[in-house]
């Protein structure tokens, strides 16, 4: 699936909740809980993306010309968001990742988590994902 197709899939998945924010967040929390994201040995100090409050770990690798991400976070809502980003971006070519606008976050009504005041490290994580992809494409 392309990045766009995965985004569409996630939008459909969240659409059923409509205005029910509680349902939406419960789903996000479930997504966060259900994914073992990163190998323990990768949860090192140099892989931490420091937000003000919750911490995110990211590992990027190049496999068969595709960028593969694994990640984790200590707060479960952040982890749910991280899982969505990994699902959308991991396993694609570097140039596709760099171009991704990630508009689905806005569409599913979770844009507030990408606001700089949220201090959760997500914006920094997306930047890091793209920077890593860029470095692989060189």
């Amino acid at each position: 699936m392309t990045i766009n197709e995965i985004e569409k899939e996630i939008i459909e998945e969240f659409e059923i909740f409509g205005d029910d924010w509680e349902g939406k967040y419960e789903h996000l929390i479930d997504i966060g809980k259900s994914l073992p994201l990163i190998k323990e040995e990768f949860k090192t100090e140099d892989r931490i993306i420091k937000g003000c409050q919750s911490r995110v770990w990211l590992n990027s690798e190049l496999k068969d010309g595709k960028v593969v991400y694994t990640a984790d976070a200590d707060a479960i809502i952040t982890k749910g968001m991280v899982a969505l980003m990994v699902r959308v971006l991991s396993g694609h070519k570097a140039e596709e990742i760099v171009k991704a606008d990630l508009k689905f976050v806005d569409t599913i009504g979770l844009k507030e988590h990408l606001s700089p005041t949220r201090a959760n490290g997500l914006v920094s994580m997306i930047n890091k994902m793209k920077m890593d992809a860029l470095s692989f494409s060189r």
Binding site: D74, A75, I76, T78
Partner: peptide
């Protein structure tokens, strides 16, 4: 066993 960030985020909602 919960992160304060999660508690604060949901209370804000």
């Amino acid at each position: 066993e919960q992160h304060p960030f999660d508690v604060g985020t949901l209370l804000d909602k």
